[in-house]
Amino acid sequence: MTAPSMPMISLQGVSKTFNRTIHAVRDVDLDVEEGEVVVIVGPSGSGKSTVLRCINLLEIPTTGVVIVDGSNLTDVATDLDHVRAEVGMVFQQFNLFPHLTVLENITLAQRKVRGRSKSEANEMGMRQLTRVGIPEKADAFPRQLSGGQQQRVAIARALAMEPRVMLFDEPTSALDPEMVKEVLDVMLELAGEGMTMVVVTHEMGFAKAAADRLVFIDEGEIVEVGAPEEVFSNPSHDRTRAFFDKILY
């Protein structure tokens, strides 16, 4: 028997309890293989964002183990900052740094964490800006961009660190409808290039187009995992069916 290859992300029995009373996440087990795209869906308040935030320990799990690229993040001895540099994250509210230009947003961590020179970081920054389609905005401030452009800068900022994993926390939920596609297009392209991605979203179209697996979470628990088409058309749990009945036309 050959040893099974290590998954890129492994959540084992992860629970998160806030204030000792609110059980946001209960006993979640989830493995994500290298190059896999996993989409997490579920009703609001179901704990799907908390699960995602446990992957780079923005949320510290109350119990359970989080292993990313072979490092146990829940171990005190692990250098969290080191692992986080390998895990890019895109937020619902973009969270660009408003006091820095677009290019400075993208080069800050490259220089401080990766130790790249200014010209190296700028070159990588421009490459990522070109990839997300807005190299001409390098010297603009975030405030001067549309929501879709800001989110694409946020993606470029994460990609410039050359992460091994990308996490997306409802990346299109704060966008005006006409800007959703430009962001999803970038994400689709990224998925096509083989990036390991975990995406929390309400965009079922994206899940259908890009997801290898769909995870349905309700009340902090994983209810169902499967191929997107399978889960959409033939959910095996009542809770999953009830959820899709409400959101799918």
């Binding site: 895990v87 509210q93 969270n95 961590a109 401080k112 660190m161």
Partner: peptide, 29 residues
């Protein structure tokens, strides 16, 4: 907003770097 610190930390900046390069310059205003 805490999202600023989270963005900094998620990029691998440590506590001090996030405070110095992300939070303090904005707080000065």
């Amino acid at each position: 907003p805490p999202g600023q610190t989270e963005a900094g930390r998620s990029l691998g900046l440590n506590r001090r770097q996030t405070m110095r390069s992300v939070v303090l310059p904005q707080a000065m205003r």
